[in-house]
Design a protein around this nucleic acid. Sequence first.
DNA 1: GGAATAGTGTCTTTGAGACAATATCTA
DNA 2: TAGATATTGTCTCAAAGACACTATTCC
Lengths: 232, 232
Amino acid sequence: MATDYEKPDTSVDCVLLTLGEGGLRVLLLPRDKEPFAGTATLIGAYVRPQIDRTLEDTVQRALRDKAGIDGVYLEQLGTFGGAERDPRGWSIAVAYVALIQTSIADEAERRSGVRFERVLVGALPPLPFDHAEIVAAAVERVRAKASYSTLPAFLLPEAFTLAEYKQVVEQVTGRIIDDGAFRKKFDAIPGLVKIEGAKKGGTNSSGTGKRPSQLYRIAAESDRPRMLTRLF
Amino acid sequence: MATDYEKPDTSVDCVLLTLGEGGLRVLLLPRDKEPFAGTATLIGAYVRPQIDRTLEDTVQRALRDKAGIDGVYLEQLGTFGGAERDPRGWSIAVAYVALIQTSIADEAERRSGVRFERVLVGALPPLPFDHAEIVAAAVERVRAKASYSTLPAFLLPEAFTLAEYKQVVEQVTGRIIDDGAFRKKFDAIPGLVKIEGAKKGGTNSSGTGKRPSQLYRIAAESDRPRMLTRLF
DNA sequence: GGAATAGTGTCTTTGAGACAATATCTA
DNA sequence: TAGATATTGTCTCAAAGACACTATTCC
């Protein structure tokens, strides 16, 4: 034991992001305890030294226990601490971003009975504590990294087309990218590889796509996004 | 009070960086307590809810009390937590980077009697805890931001020449930049402004510079680095 | 063949880098 | 005026964006 002073409460909070109608969505769950019981919030947990060995352990435990989600891509976002952020007093929250594909969220709901509130990041309801600020930071981070890393791939299924990847980048950054330009860059991205085989149906809205398109996947050896020098 | 579980120790650690012979240097101080008493370490302090209102308060307090340094530019770096990093048990350290000009460090030493160990970031001695990892992250951060923000200005005196700024960028990034190219970009950087007046002596090693050069300073309204889209 | 999307090629413009030329100071 | 650094201008090359063109599939 290292100090005689009172210690702040320490927790983690996870901004769970996925794609949905209209773009990037945060997955929220109703709080089960006071204060703000019943209100939709980020998924979090207190750090429990007896159970967790690392901070990421705490996050994975929270996701597993509260959301039925296992082993996803995590990125530390920042730490929010102070006397004001929680009405109960001084607290520290280490915030993380998690990116999952939509089907994982669907499965989790089916298997563990949870019901996510999936809200567009641009239309957040009022959130308790400083969770609105945390979500804003998460969106900012994802937006930035969408342009210079392979992070968007973590929002997509294992196999995805170039058009789908492009659509994610466009949705997240809000910029429309020229198809030719995108394709040139895309081919050169390390960390993404072609899968031999094509895909039917196309990615368009009408559903009745014509020419099938090449599928890609994240290179096996990289379970985290590859950093690159400005792509799009 | 929010949990019945034991809480981890929570502290902040500050990577205090400055320029010196050979480039970027970390300022370390000998620890005054066990474990590792006497060993050079980062400047840190336990979070004290009774004293501090925010995490930055804790950092500023540590810098003031232990290093005699006041009100510097701070940037949160990341949070390091887990069961292994401190032999005393589970702990969390929120790490910050602080950039100061050399003269501030000199003054602090003169006024408060502390003696910094100023080590080149490329030649660190063995550091206790996970401080080596924290320093590495800090250097990485500064290196990256040197190219797309006005962060290097925080390592320089209030007034500096273009050549001095360029030298910082080169020292930090390790790349040599063409003078003409640098100048074109530099002129366009918002957040830096000309001071009407020149400077004698030049910036060269021989000391006997010839033509004086224009001085610049950080624009008054910005006490933090301006983010830009890739400069150098 | 027509419709619709996938993928390629080309042209133009922009900007970075290399480097030459000029400017301004001190001694 | 010589020497040294500051500052500007010009040329070249490569990448980015716009956009036209070809390819492949389903109906």
